[in-house]
Design a binder for these strands. Structure first.
Lengths: 145, 145
DNA sequence: CTTGACCCTGGTCTCGGGTCCAGGGTCTAA
DNA sequence: TTAGACCCTGGACCCGAGACCAGGGTCAAG
Protein backbone atom coordinates (compact mmCIF):
# COMPACT_ATOMS: atom_id res chain seq x y z
CA UNK A 1 0.00 0.00 0.00
CA UNK A 2 1.08 3.61 -0.53
CA UNK A 3 1.84 5.97 2.30
CA UNK A 4 -1.47 7.75 1.82
CA UNK A 5 -3.47 4.53 2.09
CA UNK A 6 -1.45 3.59 5.17
CA UNK A 7 -2.15 6.98 6.72
CA UNK A 8 -5.89 6.56 6.19
CA UNK A 9 -5.90 2.99 7.49
CA UNK A 10 -3.89 3.73 10.61
CA UNK A 11 -5.10 7.19 11.54
CA UNK A 12 -1.57 8.57 11.50
CA UNK A 13 -0.60 11.50 9.29
CA UNK A 14 1.68 11.10 6.27
CA UNK A 15 4.29 13.45 7.66
CA UNK A 16 4.24 11.60 10.95
CA UNK A 17 4.78 8.27 9.18
CA UNK A 18 7.84 9.61 7.40
CA UNK A 19 9.00 11.09 10.70
CA UNK A 20 8.67 7.72 12.45
CA UNK A 21 10.68 6.13 9.69
CA UNK A 22 13.48 8.64 10.22
CA UNK A 23 13.31 7.94 13.96
CA UNK A 24 13.68 4.24 13.36
CA UNK A 25 10.22 3.31 14.65
CA UNK A 26 9.23 1.94 11.26
CA UNK A 27 11.51 -0.17 9.07
CA UNK A 28 12.38 1.39 5.72
CA UNK A 29 9.73 0.15 3.33
CA UNK A 30 10.21 -1.29 -0.14
CA UNK A 31 10.12 1.21 -3.00
CA UNK A 32 8.28 1.01 -6.29
CA UNK A 33 10.07 1.86 -9.53
CA UNK A 34 8.70 5.38 -9.17
CA UNK A 35 10.33 5.78 -5.76
CA UNK A 36 6.98 5.56 -3.94
CA UNK A 37 7.08 3.78 -0.58
CA UNK A 38 5.24 0.46 -0.69
CA UNK A 39 4.10 -0.87 2.69
CA UNK A 40 3.01 -4.36 3.71
CA UNK A 41 -0.47 -4.26 5.30
CA UNK A 42 0.92 -5.34 8.70
CA UNK A 43 2.38 -1.85 9.04
CA UNK A 44 -1.12 -0.67 9.93
CA UNK A 45 -0.90 -2.69 13.16
CA UNK A 46 2.47 -1.25 13.95
CA UNK A 47 1.21 2.29 13.51
CA UNK A 48 -1.82 1.60 15.66
CA UNK A 49 0.51 0.23 18.29
CA UNK A 50 2.45 3.48 18.18
CA UNK A 51 -0.72 5.54 18.34
CA UNK A 52 -2.08 3.67 21.35
CA UNK A 53 1.22 3.65 23.17
CA UNK A 54 1.42 7.40 22.69
CA UNK A 55 -2.07 7.71 24.18
CA UNK A 56 -0.76 5.81 27.21
CA UNK A 57 1.91 8.44 27.61
CA UNK A 58 4.93 6.59 26.22
CA UNK A 59 7.43 8.79 24.42
CA UNK A 60 8.56 7.85 20.93
CA UNK A 61 11.89 6.69 22.34
CA UNK A 62 10.08 4.41 24.78
CA UNK A 63 7.87 3.13 22.01
CA UNK A 64 10.92 2.25 19.96
CA UNK A 65 12.10 0.32 22.98
CA UNK A 66 8.77 -1.51 23.25
CA UNK A 67 8.84 -2.38 19.58
CA UNK A 68 12.33 -3.83 19.88
CA UNK A 69 11.31 -5.83 22.93
CA UNK A 70 8.15 -7.12 21.35
CA UNK A 71 10.28 -8.68 18.64
CA UNK A 72 12.43 -10.42 21.26
CA UNK A 73 10.82 -13.80 21.83
CA UNK A 74 13.27 -14.64 24.61
CA UNK A 75 13.05 -11.83 27.13
CA UNK A 76 10.57 -9.53 25.46
CA UNK A 77 7.53 -10.05 27.61
CA UNK A 78 9.21 -9.41 30.95
CA UNK A 79 10.75 -6.26 29.54
CA UNK A 80 7.44 -5.01 28.25
CA UNK A 81 5.75 -5.59 31.54
CA UNK A 82 8.49 -3.88 33.48
CA UNK A 83 8.34 -0.84 31.21
CA UNK A 84 4.58 -0.67 31.55
CA UNK A 85 5.04 -0.69 35.32
CA UNK A 86 7.60 2.11 35.11
CA UNK A 87 5.15 4.12 33.02
CA UNK A 88 2.42 3.48 35.58
CA UNK A 89 4.63 4.64 38.43
CA UNK A 90 5.59 7.83 36.58
CA UNK A 91 1.95 8.44 35.79
CA UNK A 92 0.89 8.05 39.42
CA UNK A 93 3.60 10.41 40.56
CA UNK A 94 2.49 12.99 38.03
CA UNK A 95 -1.13 12.66 39.14
CA UNK A 96 -0.20 13.09 42.79
CA UNK A 97 1.78 16.20 41.89
CA UNK A 98 -1.13 17.72 39.99
CA UNK A 99 -3.48 16.92 42.85
CA UNK A 100 -1.22 18.78 45.23
CA UNK A 101 -1.29 21.79 42.96
CA UNK A 102 -5.05 21.52 42.54
CA UNK A 103 -5.57 21.49 46.31
CA UNK A 104 -3.39 24.55 46.74
CA UNK A 105 -5.28 26.41 44.07
CA UNK A 106 -8.64 25.36 45.49
CA UNK A 107 -7.68 26.61 48.93
CA UNK A 108 -6.74 29.98 47.50
CA UNK A 109 -9.95 30.31 45.53
CA UNK A 110 -12.04 29.41 48.56
CA UNK A 111 -10.25 32.04 50.60
CA UNK A 112 -10.80 34.77 48.00
CA UNK A 113 -13.97 36.84 48.36
CA UNK A 114 -13.86 37.75 44.66
CA UNK A 115 -14.14 41.45 45.24
CA UNK A 116 -12.55 44.27 47.22
CA UNK A 117 -9.04 45.65 47.26
CA UNK A 118 -6.42 43.71 45.31
CA UNK A 119 -4.05 43.91 48.25
CA UNK A 120 -6.52 41.91 50.30
CA UNK A 121 -6.91 39.17 47.70
CA UNK A 122 -5.36 36.02 49.16
CA UNK A 123 -4.43 34.77 45.72
CA UNK A 124 -2.31 37.78 44.97
CA UNK A 125 -0.92 37.90 48.46
CA UNK A 126 0.05 34.25 48.38
CA UNK A 127 1.65 34.49 44.97
CA UNK A 128 3.64 37.50 46.01
CA UNK A 129 4.68 35.74 49.21
CA UNK A 130 4.23 38.76 51.40
CA UNK A 131 1.37 37.67 53.58
CA UNK A 132 0.46 36.26 56.97
CA UNK A 133 -2.79 34.79 55.71
CA UNK A 134 -2.72 31.22 56.99
CA UNK A 135 -4.79 29.70 54.21
CA UNK A 136 -2.72 31.32 51.51
CA UNK A 137 0.56 30.35 53.10
CA UNK A 138 -0.54 26.76 53.46
CA UNK A 139 -1.81 26.60 49.92
CA UNK A 140 1.30 27.98 48.32
CA UNK A 141 3.56 26.02 50.63
CA UNK A 142 1.93 22.88 49.30
CA UNK A 143 2.91 23.90 45.84
CA UNK A 144 6.54 24.69 46.48
CA UNK A 145 9.13 21.99 45.96
CA UNK B 1 20.16 45.71 42.98
CA UNK B 2 21.96 44.04 40.08
CA UNK B 3 20.47 41.23 38.07
CA UNK B 4 22.66 38.68 39.83
CA UNK B 5 21.51 39.81 43.26
CA UNK B 6 17.93 39.74 42.06
CA UNK B 7 18.39 36.23 40.72
CA UNK B 8 19.75 35.02 44.06
CA UNK B 9 17.01 36.77 46.04
CA UNK B 10 14.15 35.52 43.90
CA UNK B 11 15.30 32.04 42.97
CA UNK B 12 14.93 32.80 39.27
CA UNK B 13 17.87 32.45 36.88
CA UNK B 14 19.54 35.44 35.25
CA UNK B 15 18.67 34.26 31.75
CA UNK B 16 15.07 33.79 32.79
CA UNK B 17 14.90 37.32 34.20
CA UNK B 18 16.12 38.82 30.95
CA UNK B 19 13.71 36.56 29.10
CA UNK B 20 10.77 37.79 31.23
CA UNK B 21 11.80 41.34 30.49
CA UNK B 22 11.69 40.63 26.75
CA UNK B 23 8.28 39.00 27.21
CA UNK B 24 6.95 42.06 28.98
CA UNK B 25 6.46 40.34 32.34
CA UNK B 26 8.94 42.65 34.00
CA UNK B 27 9.15 46.39 33.34
CA UNK B 28 12.42 47.56 31.81
CA UNK B 29 14.63 48.44 34.75
CA UNK B 30 16.75 51.55 35.22
CA UNK B 31 20.32 51.35 33.98
CA UNK B 32 23.50 52.43 35.67
CA UNK B 33 26.07 54.45 33.78
CA UNK B 34 27.79 51.18 32.94
CA UNK B 35 24.65 49.82 31.31
CA UNK B 36 24.01 47.38 34.17
CA UNK B 37 20.35 46.80 35.00
CA UNK B 38 19.43 48.28 38.37
CA UNK B 39 16.31 46.82 40.01
CA UNK B 40 14.17 48.14 42.84
CA UNK B 41 13.90 45.56 45.63
CA UNK B 42 10.16 45.11 45.00
CA UNK B 43 11.06 43.21 41.84
CA UNK B 44 11.87 40.26 44.08
CA UNK B 45 8.17 39.99 44.95
CA UNK B 46 7.19 40.14 41.34
CA UNK B 47 9.57 37.36 40.42
CA UNK B 48 8.33 35.23 43.29
CA UNK B 49 4.82 35.81 42.06
CA UNK B 50 5.86 34.57 38.64
CA UNK B 51 7.64 31.56 40.12
CA UNK B 52 4.66 30.55 42.24
CA UNK B 53 2.15 31.09 39.47
CA UNK B 54 4.26 28.89 37.24
CA UNK B 55 4.19 26.21 39.93
CA UNK B 56 0.40 26.45 39.85
CA UNK B 57 0.51 25.68 36.16
CA UNK B 58 -0.06 29.13 34.69
CA UNK B 59 1.76 29.81 31.43
CA UNK B 60 3.87 32.94 31.09
CA UNK B 61 1.16 34.52 28.93
CA UNK B 62 -1.43 33.85 31.64
CA UNK B 63 0.92 35.24 34.26
CA UNK B 64 1.29 38.43 32.27
CA UNK B 65 -2.46 38.61 32.32
CA UNK B 66 -2.56 38.14 36.09
CA UNK B 67 0.06 40.83 36.59
CA UNK B 68 -1.93 43.29 34.50
CA UNK B 69 -5.08 42.49 36.43
CA UNK B 70 -3.42 42.74 39.79
CA UNK B 71 -2.56 46.34 38.97
CA UNK B 72 -6.20 47.09 38.16
CA UNK B 73 -7.79 48.26 41.39
CA UNK B 74 -11.22 48.44 39.81
CA UNK B 75 -11.93 45.04 38.36
CA UNK B 76 -8.68 43.22 39.11
CA UNK B 77 -9.81 40.93 41.86
CA UNK B 78 -12.77 39.43 40.03
CA UNK B 79 -10.56 38.80 37.02
CA UNK B 80 -7.92 37.11 39.10
CA UNK B 81 -10.44 34.88 40.76
CA UNK B 82 -12.03 33.90 37.48
CA UNK B 83 -8.68 33.02 35.96
CA UNK B 84 -7.77 30.96 38.99
CA UNK B 85 -11.04 29.08 38.55
CA UNK B 86 -10.27 28.49 34.88
CA UNK B 87 -6.87 27.13 35.83
CA UNK B 88 -8.50 24.86 38.41
CA UNK B 89 -10.96 23.50 35.86
CA UNK B 90 -8.20 22.81 33.35
CA UNK B 91 -6.20 21.12 36.05
CA UNK B 92 -9.07 18.87 37.06
CA UNK B 93 -9.69 17.89 33.49
CA UNK B 94 -6.04 17.01 33.03
CA UNK B 95 -6.07 14.92 36.21
CA UNK B 96 -9.18 13.02 35.11
CA UNK B 97 -7.54 12.33 31.76
CA UNK B 98 -4.39 10.98 33.37
CA UNK B 99 -6.47 8.83 35.70
CA UNK B 100 -8.22 7.32 32.74
CA UNK B 101 -4.89 6.47 31.17
CA UNK B 102 -3.61 5.12 34.46
CA UNK B 103 -6.59 2.80 34.83
CA UNK B 104 -6.14 1.49 31.32
CA UNK B 105 -2.50 0.81 31.89
CA UNK B 106 -3.17 -0.85 35.23
CA UNK B 107 -5.74 -3.15 33.68
CA UNK B 108 -3.24 -4.21 31.04
CA UNK B 109 -0.51 -4.88 33.57
CA UNK B 110 -2.84 -6.93 35.75
CA UNK B 111 -3.82 -9.01 32.75
CA UNK B 112 -0.22 -9.69 31.73
CA UNK B 113 1.40 -12.79 33.22
CA UNK B 114 4.88 -11.30 32.71
CA UNK B 115 6.22 -14.31 30.86
CA UNK B 116 5.44 -16.59 27.93
CA UNK B 117 5.03 -15.88 24.26
CA UNK B 118 4.93 -12.24 23.17
CA UNK B 119 1.89 -12.93 21.06
CA UNK B 120 -0.04 -13.85 24.18
CA UNK B 121 0.96 -10.73 26.10
CA UNK B 122 -2.18 -8.63 26.53
CA UNK B 123 -0.19 -5.43 26.53
CA UNK B 124 1.22 -6.08 23.10
CA UNK B 125 -2.06 -7.44 21.81
CA UNK B 126 -3.99 -4.45 23.05
CA UNK B 127 -1.54 -1.96 21.66
CA UNK B 128 -1.56 -3.69 18.30
CA UNK B 129 -5.34 -3.71 18.38
CA UNK B 130 -5.63 -7.21 16.98
CA UNK B 131 -7.15 -8.99 19.88
CA UNK B 132 -10.36 -10.37 21.37
CA UNK B 133 -9.02 -10.19 24.89
CA UNK B 134 -11.76 -8.43 26.81
CA UNK B 135 -9.53 -6.83 29.44
CA UNK B 136 -7.16 -5.46 26.84
CA UNK B 137 -9.92 -4.11 24.66
CA UNK B 138 -11.58 -2.37 27.56
CA UNK B 139 -8.33 -0.93 28.76
CA UNK B 140 -7.28 0.50 25.46
CA UNK B 141 -10.77 1.64 24.63
CA UNK B 142 -10.69 3.71 27.80
CA UNK B 143 -7.65 5.47 26.49
CA UNK B 144 -8.89 6.28 23.03
CA UNK B 145 -10.50 9.60 22.37
C1' DC C 1 47.63 46.75 38.08
C1' DT C 2 45.83 42.63 37.69
C1' DT C 3 42.70 38.97 38.56
C1' DG C 4 38.34 37.10 38.84
C1' DA C 5 33.58 37.80 39.30
C1' DC C 6 30.11 40.08 37.32
C1' DC C 7 27.45 42.30 33.49
C1' DC C 8 26.11 43.55 28.45
C1' DT C 9 24.13 42.30 23.56
C1' DG C 10 22.53 39.39 20.10
C1' DG C 11 22.53 35.16 18.51
C1' DT C 12 22.10 30.17 18.34
C1' DC C 13 20.67 25.72 20.56
C1' DT C 14 17.76 22.55 23.23
C1' DC C 15 13.67 19.34 23.90
C1' DG C 16 9.47 16.49 21.38
C1' DG C 17 6.69 15.66 17.92
C1' DG C 18 5.73 16.69 14.38
C1' DT C 19 3.79 20.34 10.25
C1' DC C 20 4.50 22.95 6.14
C1' DC C 21 6.78 24.29 1.93
C1' DA C 22 9.08 24.45 -2.63
C1' DG C 23 10.10 22.33 -6.53
C1' DG C 24 9.99 18.59 -8.58
C1' DG C 25 7.99 13.50 -10.55
C1' DT C 26 3.85 9.95 -11.10
C1' DC C 27 -0.52 7.86 -11.57
C1' DT C 28 -5.28 7.55 -13.14
C1' DA C 29 -9.71 8.61 -15.05
C1' DA C 30 -12.11 11.17 -18.47
C1' DT D 1 -3.64 14.47 -23.28
C1' DT D 2 -4.56 16.74 -19.57
C1' DA D 3 -6.27 17.76 -14.95
C1' DG D 4 -6.05 16.61 -10.40
C1' DA D 5 -4.61 13.76 -6.83
C1' DC D 6 -0.91 11.64 -5.18
C1' DC D 7 4.16 10.97 -4.09
C1' DC D 8 9.35 12.32 -3.51
C1' DT D 9 13.36 15.00 -0.99
C1' DG D 10 15.48 18.32 1.95
C1' DG D 11 14.87 21.87 4.65
C1' DA D 12 12.61 25.41 7.43
C1' DC D 13 9.43 26.32 11.01
C1' DC D 14 6.19 25.81 15.22
C1' DC D 15 5.23 25.62 20.33
C1' DG D 16 7.36 27.07 25.50
C1' DA D 17 10.74 28.45 28.47
C1' DG D 18 14.58 29.31 28.81
C1' DA D 19 20.17 27.74 28.50
C1' DC D 20 24.40 28.75 26.59
C1' DC D 21 27.99 31.13 24.01
C1' DA D 22 31.23 34.60 22.04
C1' DG D 23 33.21 38.71 22.39
C1' DG D 24 33.15 42.40 24.61
C1' DG D 25 32.93 46.07 29.09
C1' DT D 26 32.90 46.82 34.51
C1' DC D 27 33.85 46.54 39.25
C1' DA D 28 36.11 45.38 43.69
C1' DA D 29 39.77 43.26 46.29
C1' DG D 30 44.49 42.40 46.95
Amino acid sequence: MTIGALARASGVGIDAIRFYERQGLLPKPARRASGYRDYPPATVQRLRFIRHAKALGFSLAEIGDLLTLSADHERGVEGIRRRAEDRLAALEQRIAELERVRDGLKTLIDACPGHGEPDRCPILRALGDECDDAAAVTAVAAVRR
